[in-house]
């Protein structure tokens, strides 16, 4: 239903995997979000499996040394890039024991280089306080791609702590890069209604990129949670809803917008359908063209039936 924002997020992640810029991987756009994601997973596999034997040998050596010695050697000799690759080859319990004794800044840098396929067993074994500190460090760095990956690896208990500790804005930006919709739903679903209202307010009244992140996030939630958040959004002023409409048009997020509107109750959908902005012919034409392009004209037609004559 919605693909453009998801494809953009995937381009960012593919660029990260290839160590290049988003512009340099734009040529993969024809593959769509799912195709770019699959390509990224294969790229990650190819790059991370290279040199693996050497890292595995180092990991074997760490088994023979006391943990205090491993900590000393790691901090003295291994930059985070190398430590992350070695940690990926260690038993998760052992890697977590080591990681729990390393400085937060070192761990945050290591998270950037950790093999995404091996992150979950390690992160789930770290001390929650340590993870929260690393998350705060990565938020400070604005590294939401790594955080989106970490979200996938977090246990339900950790998700609750994380979601409560992170600002609305950071949560929205992380959500737009989250790997798994169900995991994102779990993270957001544990928040109180007041917090959820606050997040929606932050998204729809924030700058364009934050609003787009919100649209990108909401479409990945399950139907029930998407409906709740969409209802909160529907209570905003005409001015705010009009700004969201224009953001969706400008950012290629009409699919996400219609997904959110469709999840609203009838009263809210009626309110949206009667936004004065939809009386504006150029705006309506752009919306119809975008919806037609996505095969979503039936959604728009259904909405139009709720317009007061």
């Amino acid at each position: 239903m919605a693909d453009k924002l998801a494809a953009r997020a995937e381009l960012v992640k593919l660029a990260r995997a290839l160590g290049t810029t988003q512009d340099e991987v734009e040529f993969t756009t024809p593959l769509g979000a799912d195709g770019i994601r699959e390509l990224r997973e294969r790229v990650v596999g190819a790059l991370y499996d290279e040199h693996r034997a050497a890292f595995r040998r180092v990991a074997v050596i760490t088994r023979t040394l006391p943990m205090s010695v491993n900590v000393r050697i790691t901090l003295r000799a291994f930059p985070p890039l190398l430590a992350a690759r070695i940690a990926g080859e260690m038993a998760p319990e052992r890697a977590a024991e080591l990681a729990n004794r390393l400085p937060v800044e070192y761990l945050a840098e290591g998270c950037v280089h950790l093999d995404p396929r091996r992150a979950a067993p390690l992160i789930s074994r770290l001390d929650p306080d340590r993870v929260l500190a690393v998350v705060a460090e990565l938020v400070d760095r604005g590294d939401f791609v790594t955080l989106g990956r970490m979200l996938d690896a977090a246990s339900s208990e950790l998700l609750a702590h994380l979601a409560a500790a992170i600002s609305d804005e950071a949560l929205l930006r992380i959500g737009s890069y989250a790997e798994s919709g169900p995991q994102l739903t779990r993270a957001i679903g544990v928040l109180t209604p007041e917090r959820l209202r606050g997040i929606v307010h932050t998204a729809i009244t924030g700058p364009t990129d934050l609003c787009a992140a919100g649209l990108s996030m909401i479409v990945r939630l399950d139907d029930a949670l998407r409906g709740r958040l969409a209802e909160y959004a529907a209570s905003a002023s005409d001015e705010v809803l009009t700004a969201v409409l224009h953001t969706a048009l400008e950012e290629g997020a009409v699919g996400e917008l219609l997904s959110a509107v469709t999840a609203m109750g009838e009263q809210s959908r009626r309110r949206v359908a009667n936004l004065p902005a939809l009386n504006d012919e150029p705006t309506r034409s752009r919306l119809e063209a975008a919806a037609a392009n996505l095969g979503l004209l039936p959604c728009l037609t259904a909405l139009a039936t709720l317009r007061d004559c």
Partner: peptide
């Protein structure tokens, strides 16, 4: 080209 560049870059960094 992107894959080769990434591969070489990773080898250099490691």
């Amino acid at each position: 080209t992107a894959l080769e560049t990434a591969w070489r870059g990773q080898a250099r960094a490691l």
